[in-house]
Design a protein around this nucleic acid. Structure first.
Length: 156
DNA sequence: GCCAACGTTGGC
DNA sequence: GCCAACGTTGGC
């Protein structure tokens, strides 16, 4: 299977691209996903070496702020077993974890963050799931054409 | 297995 | 703060 591309949403109050940049090796685990569709992407489809766009939600400006690559795929999300963690899941068992995560490493913070308003105005990006009505997934696939366009805009 | 009620997401 | 859209829960 050929390389695929993804977009991850994050509330910068929780975890921003700056936080990722300041992490050791600019690498962090993407924990806390508690949606089955998003989980299935992480568990079954997101492979090491693939590209991830980093999107800031619930903030101003709403924007894609950079891109990353997957450096470790599909392993258990520890926060599900920690009763003190807000993502604790009492139904999940250590021998068959419900929730998994990947590690991503920051490749580049965009010189020009791509604002949601300009994404909506760009005909090349009108198919992006991010701007489709009713899409609330925090992890979603992006096509190669969309990926190329966003990298071009971000670095331009 | 249905579906109403409720909770969450996330743009505005 | 509002609310549309969607996911999850739980009674039946």
């Amino acid at each position: 299977m050929s390389k695929r591309y993804w977009l991850f949403k994050s509330d910068p109050d929780e975890f921003s691209i700056e936080d990722l940049k300041n992490s050791k090796d600019k690498t962090a685990c993407w924990d806390g996903v508690r949606n089955y569709q998003a989980r299935n992407f992480i568990r079954d489809e997101i492979k090491k070496g693939e590209g991830v766009l980093f999107y800031h939600s619930n903030t101003d400006p709403l924007a894609i702020t950079g891109y990353c690559k997957v450096v470790r795929e599909n392993y258990p999300d520890d926060t599900q077993f920690d009763p003190k963690n807000k993502h604790f899941d009492s139904k999940s068992k250590p021998d068959s974890p419900t929730w998994v995560m990947v590690d991503i490493r920051l490749v580049k913070k965009f010189k020009n963050p791509i604002h949601l308003t300009s994404i909506k105005k760009n005909p090349k990006l009108k198919g992006l799931k991010l701007v489709k009505k009713g899409n609330r997934l925090s992890v979603m696939p992006v096509t190669k054409a969309e990926w190329d366009e966003i990298l071009k805009l971000g670095n331009g």
